[in-house]
Structures are given as structure tokens and as C-alpha cells.
Design a protein around this nucleic acid. Sequence first.
DNA 1: GGTTGTGAATACATTCACAGCA
DNA 2: TGCTGTGAATGTATTCACAACC
Lengths: 213, 213
Amino acid sequence: MISSKTKSSMFVPEVVIQRIPIYLRILQEELNFGNNVISSKNLGNRLQMSSAQIRKDLSYFGKFGKQGQGYPIAFLVDKLKVVVGLEQNWNACIIGAGRLGQSIINYPGFSPEGFKIVAAFDSNNKSYSDENSIPILGMEKLSKTIQDKSIRVAIVSVPAIEAQKVIDLLIIEGIKAILNYAPISPKVPNDVVVRNIDPILSLQSMTYYLKRN
Amino acid sequence: MISSKTKSSMFVPEVVIQRIPIYLRILQEELNFGNNVISSKNLGNRLQMSSAQIRKDLSYFGKFGKQGQGYPIAFLVDKLKVVVGLEQNWNACIIGAGRLGQSIINYPGFSPEGFKIVAAFDSNNKSYSDENSIPILGMEKLSKTIQDKSIRVAIVSVPAIEAQKVIDLLIIEGIKAILNYAPISPKVPNDVVVRNIDPILSLQSMTYYLKRN
DNA sequence: GGTTGTGAATACATTCACAGCA
DNA sequence: TGCTGTGAATGTATTCACAACC
């Protein structure tokens, strides 16, 4: 067999990667509901997308289904978790412990999904009474803490003006995955992934469709 | 001239619509900074994208630039605001006044960007002490309030299990634009636009890239 | 019969490259 | 000279459609 790329070396489009966690969420639901097999058609219905797209997406990573039956859910969940790196937990830190930062710190939803916030930083040494037991450290502790606690993911919730500076710092410290809540479009090298949480942009990109009906 | 579609009837890809508010944000910044002309190249640099893409995007809506110079910023801002429907303000309501809902209600950032939260609803008649003066109404007031206050946009911040039900309700009331904070993939008819704010999916779609370096 | 996995076909998005203009 | 606006070319993503299989 000549020049057939192995699955693991094949380039996977970014959009596909972004859909895997969505699939995982539904699969987990189905598992909890007691089902143990699901077809691409069924999964597609749940997500308002075509069965072909689901099959094609999954095919980037291997063959997980049984013809005539569908996908064994528990097996597929395990495989997909390994594919996207969710078979392990990841330590995260948060920069910016104002109102928003505090809400994020106290939000209980991250840790069951594989992300543990193990440190919080703020330039003002505002020591909010935090309900969780995460102390808020000064920015000078950033570098050492990232090393010591093996932090690989950072959440940015500082004001817009400070955000790019903070992100630059994180990049220097070797952080390659950033969840950014500041309303800016950060500049980052192309080995760093950023996801922006920007409700205002989301709202503003909907009104276009409101005008025409 | 045979069969040349007018700009206003031309189909504009969704991705393009989503980028317009991003452009607007930078343009506004430039204005505040005192600049009054910007080139596609310059704007592209700010956003880490190609100048060609920016020119192509803008060309869906008209010709706003001057050859040899660039785009007059104030003029472009005005035009783009009209294009995406941001020359006017929009009334919004929020369903779900728990922790998250309260944060959203008290967030001061929406209104300067054209969205005013004029009503809040919750099934539990929990009357949190709200810092703003928006009263929290029972769900039975939803229908009438949406009509009376001309609400066109809804923000959903209820628990996951209730979210689809609430969204179905909103759709019955004629809402066509929904900002959804619940961790689900809602099913909606295709004349309804939904934007999901889902930090967990964002985090989970980054770890894939952490494994390989 | 029902469903996967996948090349081929189609649809969509981005970039190229250059004429046209200030 | 410097930049826009845009068809044409390229690159990406989605869908089709069907052989292979349980």
C-alpha cells in the first residue's frame, strides 16, 4: 500500500475538533439515559445536522461503528475523549478576579468536565471573600505558579485594556490554550489557541437577521 | 446589463455577518484614537486576517473605500451599523435570574452596545435584591411583556434541563434571536438565530491542540 | 433492512492578482 | 504610487451516493 496517511497523522479541520465536544455531550446524555447504541442519523437529529457530517467527522479518527446498528456509545465516548484529550484532567488558572472572574471561579461546572481552576491572579491585591478555597495571588506569582502546578490552560477575565498584555505574559510562560472573556481580538502566535467568550459580538451578529422579517 | 443582482438582494454568508461586529469594534477604537482613515491592510493586521478578506467582506454591502487611501472610518462605521441593524437599539429580556442571570442583568456592557435588558423572568419568584431596577417577573408575564415592551431579543440563563422548554416558549412568542447560556444545543426552526455561550465547549475544543506539543 | 465508511461531487469561503482610480 | 473592488482560482467543508457489512 503506497502513501496512505495513517489516521493519526492526518490533518483534522478545526471545525471538526470543535464539534467533538458537542458530540460527547449528547453521547454522555444518552448513556445516562440508559441507551448504549446510537446511529449517526439519530445523533444528527439531536443536533440538527446531517448524518453524513457526523460519519465523516468520526472517520477522521477511526472506525467506531457497526454497520446496520450504529455506534456503541460507551466505546465511542472513550475513544473521542482520548482523541481530544479529555481522558485526563487539565489544570487551569484565571487572571482577573473582579466581578466576572469571581463568578467564573465559583462556577462549579468546569471541574466535572475536566478543568480544575487551581490558581487565581489579580494585579490589585483584592482578597475577595471567596467561597471556594482558591487564594487570589499577585501577578508576580504567575510564572512560578504555572510551573509548580503544571497549569496548561488560562482563563482571562481582566478589563479589555489589560487583556493583550496579560495574554502576552501567559504566552511567555508557555501557555498554549486561552479562554478569553475580554472584549478584544487578541494577537497570538499560531501555536496558541484562543477561544473568545464575547456575548456582545454574539448579540450584534444576530440583529442582521431581525431586520429582514 | 443583464441579471446582475443588486447588493441588497445578494446572499451574504453567515461568517461574513459574524465578522462585521468585529470590524465595527476596531473601527470604533480607531475613531476614538483620532484616526479617520484606515486601509484594509491595516485593519487586517489588527485582526490577524488578510486584507483581501476584509475587502471582499465589505464588498457584499457596497463600495465604501477610496482607492489609494483606504476607508473613511466614520462613514464606514455608519454604513456597517445600518447593514447589521446596529443603528438602532434593541430591547432584550432575560429568562433565568439565578446566579448567572443576575450577573448578566448587572453587567453594564450591553446597553452601550445597543441592547437594553428591559425585563427579567424566573419561574421561582425569587426576588433577588437587584442593583439595577429591573424587576423579576413570573413566567406567566412573559407573553404580555414581550408584546408591550417590543422585545425582539432574548437571553436564556436557566438550567440546562429547562432551557429547551424556555426556548420553545420564546419562539411561540415570536422571538427570533436568542443568546443561550445553557449548556445544550437547542433545536430551533431555521428562521430563528441562536448563539450559544458555552465556555466548557470552548475549553474542551482546545485540549486537542495541547496534546501535540 | 438498516447503517457505516468513504471516494466523488458539490457547495462554500478565502486568496490571488490585477484593472481602475485618486 | 497606493489602495480598492472584484472576477477567477484555489482551498476547505459538506453532502451525496453507494459498496460493504451485520
